[in-house]
Amino acid sequence: MIRSGRRAASLMCPFCHAGFMARERVRVCARCGALHHAECLGIHGRCAVHGCKGSSTEDEVEDEWTIQPDDPEPIGDQIAFRILYAIARGVYRPGDKLPTVRDVAARLRVNPNTVSKAYRDLERDGVLVSRRGTGVFVHEDALATATERRQALVLSRFERAAGEALDAGLDAFQIQEVLAVALERAARARGRARELAELPLPETRGREGKDGERTP
């Protein structure tokens, strides 16, 4: 893909509530991962997400507001999940206004109809509400739905990966090991390795190199 899509991206800056333009400089809260305009974060001095007290930011990154055009998942669904993740993570709070269909379409370089369909789907699910003439907003009760849907989606992804691993002949213990490694790598790549220390992770040492699926 053109750009790495390693982070579930938010739709607008939590400080100024405007969207991000293509190739604009953005910075990421090291604690919650929310994107900010580089300038806004400079003004605010710390993460502007409600409830997040993150004060350090990662270095400036290329904006990662991406979709994967050739993913089997339709682009409309990818956009809908981005929004759900953003709500679940607190980047959007109930009552917040979403960027316009037009802005999102131009920014992601996708068809406006695809974006408005994603908005409509989320509206039907009670996550968004559109107010005639003023725009689309996060529904007052959206947080529960968004959290639930996020859980379900992540679970289904892991289920598929676990199924593949079982089919490939790994046993349950090996899969747990692989999962621990994967989690560690993903967290490290996001500068969130510290969180792992708080987790009761399964023992990952001691079987090093046995199955060759791990690099030291």
Binding site: V101, R102, A105, A106, R109, P112
Partner: peptide, 17 residues
């Protein structure tokens, strides 16, 4: 190249909106 293609796609997206 990718950059010009992105310009085209962005222009089309704004146009049809």
């Amino acid at each position: 190249d990718v950059v010009v293609r992105d310009d085209f796609l962005e222009a089309i997206a704004s146009f049809v909106a």
